[in-house]
């Protein structure tokens, strides 16, 4: 079953507007697509209403703009997602740091087959 795209997500405007080229979503790297999918999937699961994610993303953008505004869109997206997950206690800062470190050092290298 294919999920139905939600206009609330695909038609976001202003600072939250999804990067597009000739109408199609643009992901500069595979992880950007994953980060997009994760945030949307968690919303579909009912973990948060979309406006919570959107607000978190806009907050990031405002902070970034104040600092010069050079952070790529999906890095802000990922930071917004992290903030929301930590706030809701879905993941802890400690387990996220540990898991990231494990991937960085190669101590853990499992079924991630989306990098090419």
């Amino acid at each position: 079953m294919t999920p139905e795209p939600s206009p609330e997500i695909s038609e976001m405007e202003g600072a939250a507007a999804l990067p597009r080229k000739n109408g199609e979503l643009v992901f500069e790297a595979p992880w950007e697509g994953r980060a997009f999918g994760i945030a949307v999937a968690l919303n579909e699961q009912g973990l948060y209403p979309w406006r919570s994610f959107r607000n978190s993303l806009v907050d990031r953008t405002v902070t970034d703009d104040a600092a010069g505004g050079i952070t790529p869109y999906y890095e802000k997206w990922l930071a917004a997602l992290e903030t929301l997950l930590l706030q809701q206690g879905v993941v802890s800062a400690a387990e996220l740091a540990t898991r990231t470190e494990q991937y960085a050092t190669g101590a853990r290298d499992d079924d991630w087959d989306h990098e090419d």
């Binding site: 990922l78 879905v90 996220l96 990231t100 991630w112 990098e115």
Partner: peptide, 12 residues
């Protein structure tokens, strides 16, 4: 960023 995205996906 790629590492963090990967860590988040894996934990979830």
């Amino acid at each position: 960023a790629a590492l963090r995205a990967r860590a988040i996906e894996s934990l979830l």
